[in-house]
């Protein structure tokens, strides 16, 4: 309940300033800026190809061709890496890779380990707790190829938990999972929120977004709106988000990149 007060003191867990991203010359995101509150669940919502996953990757510095910046608790990514856990999309992983569940979760501990260090008993205990939180401990020796889609997602979430971060960035954790997993994720969100942690998710299901999240960031190649659910989940914002791209903005930005005008023009 002391939320409004504490916000003014501690810097936002994630603040994005003038972030623009492109793929070769095609603009994906143009000049996105927002700042999120601590201890909330935040959804990034938009149509297919709106740049939701790209936004997360841009925030994590995983893509080339980024302009603008993201800061975490007022600091750069490199200074706050241990506080941030990223959960990639399930499709991006080679599920035939020869590895079992426990070893995947232990990967979450490697950010804290030295070059040659192996996970210690403490790391294993942390991984065990993470797996138990997601009800996956019974599967600890299972090959990842033998898991269902929902179980795979839970393994990823357990790996993020094992990082013991304070800010979680998740790319579509609800995509293609079963009811049990969906419930497990909701429970996890509640638990993390109780501990004052912040969760940012790419989310595609408009039916559940108001129920599962406290905050929404609407994007479609640009920022449409960002704010608490009760303020921004409006017909107008939905229309703007899903009403197609602004073709003139899109075309001219592409032309700008193609001509490398952004480099020729004086910086302000």
């Amino acid at each position: 309940m002391k939320q409004p007060n504490s916000n003014t003191h501690t810097p936002s867990p994630l603040s994005v300033q003038h972030l623009s991203m492109r793929y070769h010359h095609k603009p994906v995101l143009t000049d996105v800026s927002f700042e999120i509150p601590e201890g909330k669940t935040i959804a990034i919502v938009g149509p297919n190809g709106a740049g939701k996953s790209t936004l997360l990757k841009g925030i994590m510095g995983l893509e080339p061709n980024i302009e603008g910046q993201a800061s975490f608790f007022g600091e750069s990514l490199d200074k706050k890496r241990q506080a941030i856990a990223y959960v990639p999309q399930r499709e991006e992983i080679d599920w035939d890779f020869p590895i079992n569940v426990l070893d995947v979760v232990l990967m979450g501990r490697h950010g804290q380990l030295k070059l040659w260090q192996r996970p210690s008993q403490l790391d294993i205990d942390i991984a065990e707790q993470a797996l138990k939180d997601l009800k996956m401990w019974d599967f600890k020796n299972r090959q990842i190829s033998q898991l269902s889609g929902g179980q795979q997602q839970r393994v990823f979430l357990a790996r993020a938990l094992a990082q013991q971060a304070t800010l979680y960035l998740m790319d579509e954790p609800f995509a293609g999972v079963d009811v049990a997993t969906e419930q497990a994720i909701i429970e996890l969100f509640k638990e993390l929120k109780l501990q004052g942690k912040t969760i940012v998710c790419v989310h595609h299901d408009l039916n559940t977004v108001g129920e599962y999240f406290d905050w929404i960031i609407f994007i479609n190649a640009r920022l449409i709106a960002a704010g608490p659910v009760e303020e921004v989940l409006t017909k107008e914002n939905l229309n703007k988000t899903y009403g197609g791209r602004l073709s003139l903005l899109n075309d001219l930005t592409e032309q700008m990149y193609r001509t490398q005008l952004n480099k020729a023009h004086d910086t302000d």
């Binding site: 991006e92 992983i93 080679d94 990967m107 490697h110 950010g111 070059l115 040659w116």
Partner: peptide, 22 residues
């Protein structure tokens, strides 16, 4: 032998390895 865990991590998912600061 020395870097087995790190090599495996990168082979499994280089992107994720980057996010945890490897």
């Amino acid at each position: 032998v020395l870097f087995f865990h790190k090599f495996r991590l990168i082979a499994f998912s280089a992107t994720y390895a980057r996010t945890i600061g490897i």
